[in-house]
Design a protein around this nucleic acid. Structure first.
Length: 520
DNA sequence: TTCCGACAGTGGGGTCGCAAT
DNA sequence: ATTGCGACCCCACTATCGGAA
């Protein structure tokens, strides 16, 4: 199959807003693809690469050669070139990689270049990723989509699952099972504003567990072999020796456990997320790092214990199995209750101890891997501040033509100026985007003209509009982190817009001192 | 007919490892 | 030694479609 076939299908998918139409386009193409190119087609059309990462981003994709007029590149050829590009990573040869990229882009037409560019930067933007592709595979292979979904959960790779479905239908899909050593798509949580609201959604009684601010881990043990995976199924076994040892210390030898790893201070309180994140990401000097920044693991779910797969069991039974396999000290603190007051108190205690909040879990739900089912609902405390809009950036995609991303500042009474604390684009409705764009253009200092029309993904120049600091906006956020990027040495974590405060003048906004007090 | 679950898009801060400067 | 880039850790929120109620 030719790459142009995929580029055309992708364009058709993008052009139709109806999901059923997108599914039809994708299924039609999957019906035509040969067995040896099915995985490539599924990967590309769901926005992934079979190689996963190849060390190419938006920067490497500048200065590309002129396109050809005639489309001849096959999926196999493109895949082979990407494989060679990946092979260049870590060899110190950026030049060789650029040469190969030039070869690739020089061999395809303009439409294919555009498709490849978006694919390689992870911005396919055709309104279809895994969720739509699952339905398309189901339709093309004439199997129930639930079977595709189940297989994806257990295998973690949609191209592999899709190719199997197209090849062997339901029979081949049913052959996928939980394999120790192969990561399962982790179950995700929805969120709620309060524990009481979460309890209502989950149905009482429910389990309430501490939400720890660390890195999600899935630990597999088969005999004396242990492997540890992250949320995106990356293997981090070598970076977390404490966790490996903890799992090897368990009596069971056939285990798959779900949990969170984090750095604790000697007094037992959690380190800031930045510390945990840096430690987990470090691949060098782990032996000495574990002395200075030791990691602790807490498990909260069990997917396999003693040779039995538990995915389809209700939460309560999986947790019972977890308790038989793991000592209490390694299990995330948990309370089962129907009493909202008791649950709220548990939440308050977790937060006072420095943790992120709680996750409320419905006792009856199976391990719904890879979906944000209503089985798990997270609750976190929320801070708010009134801050001043210092600048705004022109949006992209569906936000093109709107001033979207806000630069936020706190008031500094000593200088009469404002100290930038970060940016946000979250919480804005289309109506608010329209309103603020109009307002901003009235108080714009530079440049006041339209959106920069340069090549996409070129941050930092031309698309920032500086504003006279007059508008006050109420911002919600999860916390204040240390920052080397912003002048005040602080940045907001997960900032989002709640509402504008036309009743407040900029000098009445929250001050730098207030923000610093939250950080400490 | 209305409601609501699931998805995709639109970006946020921080850290590490590597290659180029 | 410093800087830029790619990848990945954490993520919130709105609009939309289409099946459920």
């Amino acid at each position: 199959m030719l790459l142009i076939d995929l580029a055309r299908t992708s364009a058709a998918v993008a052009a139709d807003s109806a999901r059923l139409a997108k599914i039809r386009h994708l299924a039609e193409l999957l019906g035509r693809v040969g067995p040896d190119e099915a995985e490539i087609a599924i990967a590309y059309l769901s926005g992934e690469l079979p190689q996963r990462q190849i060390g190419v981003g938006w920067r490497s994709l500048s200065d590309l050669p002129e396109p050809r007029q005639i489309a001849t590149a096959t999926l196999g050829q493109v895949d082979a070139l990407l494989e060679r590009i990946k092979a260049q990573t870590g060899t110190g040869s950026q030049a060789a990689r650029r040469e190969l990229l030039g070869q690739l882009f020089g061999a395809v037409t303009r439409q294919e270049q555009s498709f490849l560019h978006r694919l390689l930067t992870g911005e396919l933007r055709q309104g279809a990723l895994d969720g739509v592709m699952i339905e398309a595979i189901a339709r093309a292979a004439d199997v129930p989509s639930a079977e595709v979904r189940r297989a994806l959960t257990l295998r973690g790779s949609l191209p592999a699952v899709g190719a199997a479905a197209l090849r062997g239908g339901v029979a081949e899909l049913k052959a996928f099972h939980l394999e120790v050593g192969r990561a399962v798509a982790p179950m995700l949580a929805q969120s709620a504003a309060s524990v009481t609201a979460a309890l209502e959604k989950a149905g009482a009684p429910a389990a309430v567990e501490w939400k720890l601010d660390g890195v999600r881990v899935q630990a597999h043990r088969s005999g004396d072999d242990v492997a540890v995976f992250t949320r995106t199924l990356d293997d981090i076994t070598g970076q977390v020796p404490e966790l490996v040892e903890a799992v090897l210390g368990l009596p069971g030898t056939d285990l798959v456990l779900d949990g969170e790893v984090l750095a604790l201070r000697p007094d037992g309180r959690p380190e800031p997320f930045q510390v945990t994140s840096g430690r987990v990401a470090s691949r060098t000097g782990v032996a000495s790092l574990r002395e200075t920044v030791p990691l602790t693991v807490f498990f909260f779910d069990a997917l396999r214990v003693g040779g039995a797969d538990l995915l389809d069991l209700p939460d309560q039974e999986r947790h019972a199995a977890l308790e038989t396999a793991v000592p209490a000290g390694l299990i995330t603190p948990r309370l089962v209750t129907a009493d909202a007051e008791e649950a709220e108190a548990f939440f308050g205690d977790a937060v006072r101890r420095g943790h992120e909040g709680v996750v409320v879990k419905s006792l009856g739900t199976p391990y719904a891997a890879g979906r944000r089912g209503a089985g798990w609902i997270k609750v976190k405390p929320r801070h708010t501040l009134d801050l001043v809009v210092l600048a705004a950036e022109w949006g992209s995609g569906r936000r093109r033509g709107w001033l979207s991303n806000l630069h936020l500042g706190a008031y500094d009474p000593e200088t009469g100026g404002f100290v930038m604390l970060g940016k946000t684009f979250k919480g804005l409705t289309d109506e608010l985007l329209t309103w603020q764009t109009e307002q901003f253009l009235r108080i714009a200092e530079s440049p006041a003209d339209g959106p920069a029309d340069g090549p996409a993904g070129n941050p930092g120049d031309g698309h920032v509009v500086t504003l006279t600091p007059t508008l006050v906006v109420e911002i919600a956020f999860d916390g204040v982190q240390r920052s080397s990027r912003y002048p005040g040495g602080m940045a907001l974590r997960f900032a989002r817009v709640l509402r504008y405060r036309p009743d407040k003048r900029p000098e009445e906004a929250d001050t730098v001192a207030t923000v610093r007090a939250i950080m400490l």
